[in-house]
């Protein structure tokens, strides 16, 4: 890791705070993806397997929520987490925790909608077998999620891409505090506003590199896994 850091720092002519910024960016985005997966995968699977009134409407809504405007989410989370808001007593505003909450709200619909689609397709294929095996609802969902795991990686990646690239929500709820809530994207926004375009572009390249690296890692893992499990 250390050699990577010095390489990155070389790229940016030795910004000492860069490593902390990159680490915070990854932590916030990955934590948001984990939380969003905990919400989105079971929710998507449940919608895929359940018939209820208004299901079509829920699916349309979920697909629409994939495009939630980050600024609006940021504002809503800001108002909720503000000391004057309903969740103010947690003191989360202007902390990394607030950024994780906002990004979870942004990413969960993406994961839920893509999971719903994936699981529903698989359910059409598996329905007869799983029913004939007399599997209960929990067993069905578990089997479908497990067998769809490689496709679900794509959903998680889509969520991570959204989270890692996002600035509108986290700059509002995180406050872009130096050394505390400053991420790659908010730092890029700040450097741009300071007119330091070369540093902003450099940070942008690092961000793009990280997103590509994470995708490449997940892709490799997916290919290897598929070769084993079909």
């Amino acid at each position: 890791m250390a050699s990577d850091v010095s390489a990155l720092q070389l790229v940016l002519s030795g910004d000492p705070a860069l490593f902390a910024i990159v680490r915070l960016s990854l932590y916030v985005s990955l934590a948001a993806v984990v939380l969003a997966a905990l919400i989105g995968i079971p929710l998507g699977a449940w919608i895929a397997l359940t018939n209820f009134r208004g299901r079509q409407g829920v699916i349309v809504l979920l697909n629409a929520l994939m495009g939630l405007p980050p600024v609006v989410v940021g504002l809503a989370v800001y108002l909720a987490l503000s000391r004057s808001g309903p969740l103010g007593s947690f003191g989360l505003l202007f902390t990394p925790g607030a950024m994780i909450v906002a990004q979870t709200v942004l990413v969960a619909p993406i994961i839920a909608a893509l999971t719903r689609q994936t699981i529903e397709d698989l359910w059409i294929e598996y329905r007869d077998e799983l029913t004939a095996m007399n599997l209960g609802p929990f067993g069905r969902v578990a089997a479908l999620i497990w067998d769809a795991r490689f496709s679900l990686v794509t959903a998680l990646l889509a969520g991570f891409g959204r989270a890692a690239a996002e600035v509108g929500a986290i700059i509002i709820v995180g406050g872009n505090i130096e050394g505390f809530t400053r991420t790659m994207t908010t730092a890029i926004a700040l450097e741009t506003s300071k007119g330091d375009l070369p540093l902003a572009v450099g940070l942008g390249l690092v961000l793009i590199g990280i997103v590509i690296a994470v995708n490449a890692l997940a892709w490799t893992a997916r290919r290897a896994g598929e070769r084993l499990a079909g």
Partner: peptide, 10 residues
Amino acid sequence: FQRPAMLRRS
């Protein structure tokens, strides 16, 4: 079934 679904496993 006539076309049994194979679980994506070994």
